[in-house]
Amino acid sequence: MNELSETLPQGAAPGRLARLARLWRLFARNRAALFGLAILAGVVALAAIAPVLYPESPFSLAGRPMSPPFGDWLFGTDTLGRDVMAGIAHGARTSLMIGLVATLVAVVFGTTMGALAGYYGGWIDDLLMRITEVFQTIPSFVFAILLVAIMSPSIQSIVIAIAVVSWPALARLVRGEFLSLRNREFVQANVLMGMPDWKIILVQILPNALSPIIVAGSLMVATAILIESGLSFLGLGDPNVMSWGFQVGAGRTVLRRAWWICTFPGFAILLTVLAINLVGEGLNDALNPRLREGKA
């Protein structure tokens, strides 16, 4: 060895657990993200124990209509005497479920479209991106209303509508990532090995594009919850499922006489969306640490 030799990495190779621990440390540096995670955990817990806390249907009559909050009922009752808190608990299930499922569908579809467009380029890219643009020309909320109205309101139609209006943004993001990654030399090395395209896309490039997809996906959950609330507020929700948007819509007419009917479900929406955004922001910091240092 002379003085110009490079030293090899020392110590044990870091395992999967150590890498997760490092990610958690980066995430936990962001206090607001921890706060968001706590709220989100609360909402998830509420959704999980809703059937235990309120075994009766949230649509069933609980008592005198428009009872004020913090009396017999924690958040009072609505115009028909339904327990607002029971509605919030069951609505949490609806909101989270729709948010997650719709986002999942949008992420899978958007990633597929973006990956194909970005990897192959040429006429495939042109075709897929023109299709994407068609979807982007229609304002997303109006489009969602239209879709639900056509398909008749139900959980499935709401999920489909939200996914249909959400995937184009993701497709564009993924396309951009793939465009830059497919020209990296490691991808060219894989081509030289004779590796099939699907394997290069799924095994080689996709893991490198995952961080921005996770961040965008987590923020998309928040948007999905907002769209769902908006739809049920307008009466386009599934009539058999309790949801926060429906509660706000139902209490809207009596806002001045019974403020609590709108207010508490509204807060639930606000807190949940805020929490998800904070968590998304924290994920962004943890997964793209360089950007964070640039800001500091």
Binding site: E185, F186, L192, M193, G194, M195, Q204, P207, N208
Partner: peptide, 25 residues
């Protein structure tokens, strides 16, 4: 390749990077 930073997939272990080719074949 030229660029030592772009020519290895950052998400894969060194052993996998080298073994990928023969496995593909």
């Amino acid at each position: 390749f030229q660029d030592p930073y772009a020519s290895l997939n950052p998400r894969r272990r060194v052993g996998d990077i080298i073994a990928e080719g023969p496995v593909t074949q």
